[in-house]
Amino acid sequence: MARIIVVTSGKGGVGKTTTSAAISSGLALRGHKTAVIDFDIGLRNLDIVMNCERRVVYDFVNVINGDANLRQALIKDKRVENLYILPASQTRDKDALTVEGVEKVLTDLAADGFEYIICDSPAGIEHGAFMALYFADTAIVVANPEVSSVRDSDRILGILQSKSRRAENGERVEECLLLTRYNPERVAKGEMLAVADVEEILATKLLGVIPESETVLKASNQGVPVIHDATSTAGQAYTDAVARLLGDDVEHRFINMEHKGLFKRLFRRSA
């Protein structure tokens, strides 16, 4: 049985696509056959973050409409074995996604031996976001440490537990929170919410805290998911999050401000 994981948030620009690329790459790096689907029809960018935009021939909507089969549309990642990308259509509109069509794609992927299917959700709470979350077993809710983003995540959690197929069957979607673009210095100044505040408001399990890092933008411009950059704090934090998703017990890092002690300063100077 494939585990279907939606990466969702309500709000746009919080790091869903960055997270989808990192988590799917991380799962594949750990040896799991993984597919990542871009549900952001009309605004596709997962293919850019994963550097395969020039290899897109057929897309998700083509498969749903029967213009192409899954094998033709799936793009094999060049960096990691076991990782496949199903890109969004740039030209269609969101209504091209139907419950039956999405279900068929997911079932076919599972039948093909995929262990993890990551669904990169568009922003908002409308049709596209709903399609991305409807079949989820697990939801990674991405939030930034600010009030409006946390509120939108709360809203999405409510929709997940009431409108998804699991909810319709009286089951719960496993939910976890990924706090991204976290900046301990700004938290200390009171400009951002602290991890504990967000955890308290959302009352849900914390999958990880991804620090704000310049390496993320650089990574997406180069089309290399940041999880491949072992020197980046964001990359390390994503590796930890993948481990937790797989059930490992890993302590949270990058939550507190670094203390630039003497040793570190000396070290810097000589480096």
């Binding site: 509120r151 409510g158 408001i201 009352a203």
Partner: peptide, 26 residues
């Protein structure tokens, strides 16, 4: 379970007990 933003729960004819929290916007 928590009652999230955008959700509405109504106990018709009796009391309502919420064991978790009621979010802003709920």
């Amino acid at each position: 379970t928590p009652i999230r933003s955008g959700q509405q729960v109504y106990a018709a004819g009796g009391d309502l007990i919420v064991l978790s929290s009621v979010s802003a916007g709920a």
